[in-house]
């Protein structure tokens, strides 16, 4: 099966787009099936690599996201049939029996099949000043940037697990942390919220939102709030961390005619097949994970997809739609 790679060094049996748990898990299985596979993703481990702590993935009582991402990546790289490259697919189109891929770094590849496992992209606050101060105080990655805010004042926005873990991590660096959440209850696992409550330097700003991020000379100086907090309508800050969820990017599915739902999730059936032949989907960007985006669900989908890719590529007479309908409405 892996003969295509011998014909041309840049033709693979499978292009796995995304190097998160779904893509890397798929890669491990594909390699074991001796399918040449190229994993292309901007970050090894995907979002996992930027997660402070993971405590809900079986087999690890507590592990840093970075360490877990490293385990995932090394596992995939352990096989000769896999190539894992830090790059991002920007263009993709079907060209006869192959898919042509172009990347952010200007590289070109071809593959007989594609697994779209691109995960999601961060939601933005969409308030004045957010874009202006991105990278100059506004951050979407706590673990990446927390250390730059040692003994400074920061806010973190968002009431989910990422917001809670972010507040916890920031509390170890910043002098003051304001956890801003628009509701009066948290979506985060209560165990995380309890731990944040134990941190003396975290203040809870509930049922409130940021209306503007302000600063001068390329430096963030604070935020304006929708409602007063402790009698003031603004908070002086050095940094604002945004953790208000994420959404799938439907650009790549659109390039190969794979259908997405109203929220941009790639529609897949029980075998991770999409509406486009030779295109599979796995992980946070699919309808299978849309209700519960977890490392475990992504790993599972990646594995199922790899098994099905192996079966389908080995049986040229197979009917793409034989494995159950791909419901597109």
């Amino acid at each position: 099966m892996a003969d295509t790679k011998k014909e041309s060094p840049n033709v693979y049996d499978v292009a796995v787009i995304g190097a998160g748990p779904a893509g890397l898990s798929a890669s491990v299985y594909l390699s074991r099936y001796k399918l040449s596979n190229l994993v292309l993703g901007p970050e090894y481990g995907g979002y996992v690599s930027t997660t402070h702590l993971v405590e809900d993935y079986l087999g690890f009582l507590t592990v840093s996201g970075l360490e877990l991402a490293d385990h995932f990546t090394k596992h995939a790289q352990n096989y000769q049939d896999a190539e894992v490259v830090a790059d991002k697919v920007t263009e993709m189109k079907q060209n006869g029996k192959l898919f042509d891929l172009k990347t952010w770094n200007g590289k070109e590849y071809q593959a007989r099949s594609v697994l779209i496992a691109t995960g999601t992209v961060h939601n933005k606050l969409d308030v004045p000043g957010e874009k202006e101060f991105e990278g100059h105080g506004v951050s979407y990655c706590v673990t990446c940037d927390a250390a730059f805010f040692k003994n400074r004042r920061v806010a973190i926005v968002g009431g989910g697990d990422s917001g809670a873990k972010g507040a916890l991590h920031l509390a170890d660096f910043a002098s003051e942390v304001y956890w801003i959440h628009r509701r009066d209850t948290f979506r985060a696992e209560p165990i995380w919220v309890d731990r944040v409550k134990e941190k003396p330097n975290v203040q809870f700003v509930m049922e409130n939102t940021i209306t503007e991020i302000v600063g001068k000379d390329n430096k963030l100086t604070g935020v304006k709030l929708a409602k007063p907090f402790e009698g003031k309508s603004n908070i002086a800050l050095d940094g604002v961390f945004v953790e208000i969820g994420s959404h799938p990017d439907k650009t790549l599915p659109g390039m190969v005619g794979a259908t997405t739902d109203g929220d941009g999730n790639l529609i897949v059936n029980n075998h991770q097949r999409t509406s486009a032949e030779f295109v599979w989907g796995a992980g946070d960007n699919t309808t299978a994970s849309a209700l519960f985006r977890q490392i475990s669900t992504a790993v599972s989908e990646g594995s199922i997809a790899a098994g099905d890719i192996y079966e389908y590529l080995n049986d040229p007479r197979a009917d793409w739609h034989s494995k159950g309908p791909i419901v597109t409405d």
């Binding site: 951050s139 940037d145 730059f148 390329n218």
Partner: peptide, 25 residues
């Protein structure tokens, strides 16, 4: 004042004269 990485700063004559923040093309 690097607050996010990667950050790229060009120095000329001992002064920073331009920068890029984040992965850029």
């Amino acid at each position: 004042n690097v607050m996010s990485i990667p950050t790229f700063i060009v120095f000329k004559g001992g002064e920073p004269i331009g920068s890029l923040v984040g992965a850029q093309p």
